[in-house]
Write a protein that binds this DNA or RNA. Structure first.
Lengths: 204, 204
DNA sequence: AAATGGTTTAACAAATCCGTCTAACAAAAT
DNA sequence: ATTTTGTTAGACGGATTTGTTAAACCATTT
């Protein structure tokens, strides 16, 4: 009896297929084949395609949520360093999960019933993260150290700059084929640029 | 004999369906029903679902490409004003076509055979647009008016900031439910923020 | 009015895809 | 050794979906 084995295989294959092709594009037969099992197995372990997808999507949604929190959230750095470090770590997370954002955005978009679930996830993050940072930034702004800004706007700036290049990579790659020799170098440049942009946004 | 009529109806319906659900999610029967014709008509005018989709996608791709060009391209304004104006007009275009970027990115992403086509489209834009702007900015930088920057990086900053909120709207909406009373106001704030960010990016 | 052309319809065919069922199989428990 | 429990394989069914075909339709031309 080796249950965990095939279940994990199916999950791994499903993750790949769903991430690459979305719910409609992914075919259960392809998942099964890629997992090296008959497609009946998929129903044995997960009943339906829907439930299997559910499992993958909610995993990925909470991963995506946590990524912002853990990147910007923990360290005891001074506010500006913390922001810089947050962008950097969030960017690193994206490099390790380059097509996660596209997957989330798509599937949430095409399933409005998910909005509520997402709303909850997001709200918790905002509450936990942004209030504290806002106070710190207000304090700095009060001291005339930085420009006063709304953290949510600033965070959206940062997240936009970080995520978009990954979402749109195939579209923008031709533009930067010259400026950078390879994908890795391009993203390294991009990370530096994003930090620069955000720092200048709040610099006095 | 009124050929153009139904052909146009089918195209209109196909556009809606494909934009909303993507190639796999859209069903030819639904397109036909929405166009008010039998689904055989769809094959009569376009042979296959693939060819119909082809038509829609390439229309949308060139629209997307032109949007950047026309927004940033034409007016005889001084460079900084031109940049400001470009962001503003590009943003307005997105407000009128809020789910165009998601559509393009998705379908191009899931069809690597399109990369080449996209590459061509993009390259022409870059050549036509960026070289001139780069020279102007270099000149300003030489005079010490602004920070020296790579236009392509700057443009990617601008496009990222502009497009991302539309792509991710369902995900970020809960965060800004407080800050703005409605969608329209949120995007108005966002447009101003994006201009501010980019101006500060190059300000000396 | 008969013929001609493009257009439309309805029925059909083929493929795909999700899900079920039954029987076989293996390992552990009795 | 037999039963039990959990796992696997293969075949099957039904629904959906894309694509085809042949005949009807209708406006214009002759």
């Amino acid at each position: 009896m080796k249950p965990k084995d095939t279940e994990a295989e199916i999950l791994k294959a499903a993750e790949q297929e769903f991430m690459l092709r979305g719910f409609d594009g992914a075919k259960t037969a392809a998942i099964a084949r890629s997992a090296g099992v008959t497609h009946a197995m998929l129903h044995y372990y997960f009943r339906t395609k829907e439930q299997l997808f559910e499992r993958i999507l909610s995993d990925k949604m909470s991963l995506m949520g946590r990524s912002v929190l853990t990147a910007f959230g923990n360290p005891g750095l001074p506010p500006l360093e913390r922001l810089k470090d947050g962008i950097s770590r969030h960017f690193d997370f994206l490099m390790a999960n380059p097509d996660l954002p596209r997957f989330i955005i798509n599937e949430v978009f095409s399933r409005p019933e998910r909005y509520e679930l997402m709303r909850g996830e997001i709200s918790r993050i905002v509450d936990r993260l942004m209030q504290g940072v806002q106070q710190e930034l207000d304090k700095l702004a009060g001291q005339g150290e930085i420009e006063s800004v709304d953290v949510r706007m600033l965070m959206l700036d940062a997240v936009s700059l970080n995520i978009f290049p990954f979402i749109a990579y195939p579209v923008i790659e031709p533009i930067f084929g010259n400026i950078a020799v390879d994908r890795e170098q391009f993203f390294a440049l991009r990370k530096a640029e994003n930090i620069e942009v955000i720092m200048r946004r709040i610099k006095k």
